[in-house]
Amino acid sequence: MIKTENVVKVFNTRSGVVRAVDRVSVEIAKGEVVVVIGPSGSGKSTFLRCINGLEQFSEGRVIIDGVDLTDKKTNINKVRAEVGMVFQQFNLFPHKTVLENLTLAQCRVRRRSQKVAEGKAHGLLQKVGIPDKAGEYPSRLSGGQQQRVAIARALAMDPKIMLFDEPTSALDPEMVGEVLDVMKQLAREGMTMVVVTHEMGFAREVADRVIFMDEGKVVEVGTPEHFFTNPREERAKLFLKQVL
């Protein structure tokens, strides 16, 4: 489903050239849930953003469902419609109601009628547990509710893949659970997911595979049991000691 080959992302900063993502090659199968963990600044978010082309990578290839992002003929918008993304800061459209947030891209990109889009939107709001907030503006919702709307907004496009960029990091602790529950349900339904997170409990419970990144490189890959109980690499051991 997702295949990255030697992806490199270079940032030019004042202090010199930084390789935020350094030759990352990963293959993710359909229905797989992959959790990317690592210390902050390890390039895991940047790598995630390379997968849907939000970040222009400097070298390497990303292939989504057989489509090569680096190919000049590839319509990146078509690929993105198939790859949902959830952000740390929710990024809901504040000038639109919850319902409009969910229908906008359906109508513009999928060319669905308003009626079909609204039907889909109501169904998804039901699914993420806030069917009664359709008419509200995002600013009237709690952080947890906003993030669930953001998940519903991405799902409204019927994506084949969902990317999560630290979806719970900006939430108050008591709201983390409700968002993780929605993600767990999604995983159970067989969605292909790539999740960047600091929620080790979620990684252990839901992930099929854990990728540990540091300084732009993939340091260790393994199943959750293996990674959390018996990591090979020193850096992974050190990281786990600090977070667990």
Partner: peptide, 30 residues
């Protein structure tokens, strides 16, 4: 307008013009 707004719209598959017209400009005009 925060960069996240553009990123959210683009990540949903909206093109540059749709993003401007439906997401950025309405907020900017306010």
């Amino acid at each position: 307008i925060p960069k996240g707004q553009t990123e959210a719209a683009r990540s949903l598959g909206m093109n540059v013009f749709q993003t401007m017209a439906d997401v950025i400009l309405p907020q900017a005009f306010k």
